[in-house]
Design a protein around this nucleic acid. Sequence first.
DNA 1: GCGCATTTGTGTACATCGTCCACAATGAGC
DNA 2: GCTCATTGTGGACGATGTACACAAATGCGC
Lengths: 213, 213
Amino acid sequence: MAVRAPPAARGTYRHGDLRRALIEAGIALARAGGPDAVVLREATRRAGVVPNAAYRHFASRLDLLQAVRAAALARVADAMESELAKLRRGRRPADFARASLRAVGTGYLRFAAAESGLFRTAFVAPGPLSAAALPAAAGPGGLNPFELLGAALDRMVEAGVLARARRADAEYIAWSAVHGLAMLVIDGPLRGLGPAARRRLGRRLLDMVENGL
Amino acid sequence: MAVRAPPAARGTYRHGDLRRALIEAGIALARAGGPDAVVLREATRRAGVVPNAAYRHFASRLDLLQAVRAAALARVADAMESELAKLRRGRRPADFARASLRAVGTGYLRFAAAESGLFRTAFVAPGPLSAAALPAAAGPGGLNPFELLGAALDRMVEAGVLARARRADAEYIAWSAVHGLAMLVIDGPLRGLGPAARRRLGRRLLDMVENGL
DNA sequence: GCGCATTTGTGTACATCGTCCACAATGAGC
DNA sequence: GCTCATTGTGGACGATGTACACAAATGCGC
């Protein structure tokens, strides 16, 4: 009878929740192979549906990719928040603020290393032009990765650890540093570096951000 | 008769220098559309040759891409060197060393902004696994981008601007920062930022590297 | 000079992909 | 219960990467 064979095979004509199923499949594909692996036909196959069915829910492969991308971004935010959650709140504000910034960076780098396919998908060039703006890409706390970083920096200013004059654009600079390391580690010259070396480099980079910002 | 129609149409059976022609076409494609635009059939079309001819010179599309990638990397090195060449040598060694580091970074960022397609191609993930090691990717001076950066950092140590203890891994950290900014500006949230804002951010980032390294 | 093997380009073919169009099954609203 | 908008199916097209067999040109040994 095979009501639920591994790929699919449903009895009903309607799928019920195809849109979600396609995104789910897309996430699985992205996880395994990055953005290029998000292939429309394969997603429909996994959803047990004919390729064209996808066009009832997405205008194009790119449209599906964007949805997957948003999901991936949300997971980045998750990773950051879970790192932030580890912080003990008891400390002096200055230390706490600094630790927040590091936590944000650490979450980013950890996620990049652990889920490189999704990470690459999250930051793929979104077509020729797109406001993008990381729309519904927030984590459980309701903040997207960019906003989480901004909040950490604000905390640093309040705690007097970061001069107010240096606050402007600080998120771009800090993000750049962390993002660059993530990229180089994922598929740049630093690929296959070993977790220990990766952590060491990560710490060193965050030192630079902390001191140089 | 059309001996030389725009796309191609040669008289001879042999092409003469197909390998080079394909790489050249690949570079043009990468320039215009990044790594994904390096399409084997289109390259052969431009070379005025049937698709399969490419396989006499490249094992696969990916192999062609690697060749284009090497060329792109060489141009990155060019950009860095040309920025280094602008430096007046007369100054105090410390200033000169610092300026070298900035020049390397500036060249990198300039190239990323001016030739984003080639830049993205230069740093695309090279397949599932590859030693890569930036082989014949050097500029006129014979140094690849990574080596140019290393040389600048060495100069800083010699000039006493960078503590010897902090020299280790410094290229990875510095590269990360600059690379990250380049990525964000090219197709991340900082896309379409305007040259002035871009330069400002670049300077700020290089400040961070200089102070925080 | 000449014959033949090696190189290099051609022709045909296949699977896969994104996408379009016409049609069929379904379920909601009257 | 009829109608109609929604959602999935079937078949098709052009593009891509690539494999296999064949043909033209080159160059080497003689």
